[in-house]
């Protein structure tokens, strides 16, 4: 049983770190500000969730898992709020979304 949990949590951790790296690559590759927001979204949704899930499986039922769930809730609530605040203030600050095609 322990081995199964270890394997699942290892898969979660590796997958989460892969998503974090992909989000970082997207942050570099994307052409304009608003598309970079989506890349940052990949890092802080599934990347963060999978890493926290992997750690949660290792922690078992203890105070540590409660704190991990609190970090998860904190990231899940503050992440989109910060992204929306960024997008809105960039729009008001004069950054125009780039259209690659017209429609």
């Amino acid at each position: 049983m322990n081995v199964v949990i270890d394997i699942v949590s290892a898969v979660c951790l590796i997958g989460g770190s892969a998503f974090v790296v992909i989000g970082g690559i997207g942050l570099i590759r994307m052409p304009d500000f608003f598309t970079r927001l989506h890349a940052a979204g990949v890092c802080e949704t599934l990347g963060a969730w999978l890493v926290l899930l992997g750690l949660l499986l290792q922690a078992g039922w203890s105070m540590v898992s409660v704190k991990l769930i609190m970090i998860f809730l904190m990231l899940a609530i503050t992440g989109p709020t910060a992204t929306h605040a960024l997008a809105k203030s960039a729009l008001h600050g004069g950054v125009k979304p780039k259209h690659l095609d017209d429609n």
């Binding site: 890092c43 802080e44 203030s89 960039a90």
Partner: peptide, 14 residues
């Protein structure tokens, strides 16, 4: 732009 930098700092913090 400046907002790119703020976004980078936010992602870095996460």
């Amino acid at each position: 732009t400046l907002y790119d930098r703020v976004l980078a700092v936010n992602a870095f913090g996460g």
